[in-house]
Amino acid sequence: MSLLIEVLSAAFLLTGGFLCITGGVGMLRMPDFFSRVHAAGVTETLAAPLLLFGLLLQMEWSLEMVKVIMILIFILATNPTATQAMAKAALNGNQKPLVADETDTRGEGSSNS
């Protein structure tokens, strides 16, 4: 049983660490601010829970575990708000997103869906 927990924890920690680096690399490779936001999202939405779950499996039963879960909930609850605030500020600061296709359907509704 403890071996299973050990393996599970290691898997979570390694996957989380890998995703963390993925997000960092993505932040460097992406061409403009708005696509970098997506890369940063990888580190915060999946890497953080995986790392914290991996940590949770290694801890003994105590009140501390609740705090880890609180940190997790807090990160997941605040990350979208912070991201949205940054995106909105960037738009107001005349940062226009880089768009791949020339068909900009802005303001036309979802007629092409």
Partner: peptide, 15 residues
């Protein structure tokens, strides 16, 4: 494994 995860976090911080 904790060490590996910590190293990964540090690398990401540098990036």
């Amino acid at each position: 494994m904790l060490t590996a995860a910590i190293v990964a976090i540090l690398v990401t911080m540098i990036l």
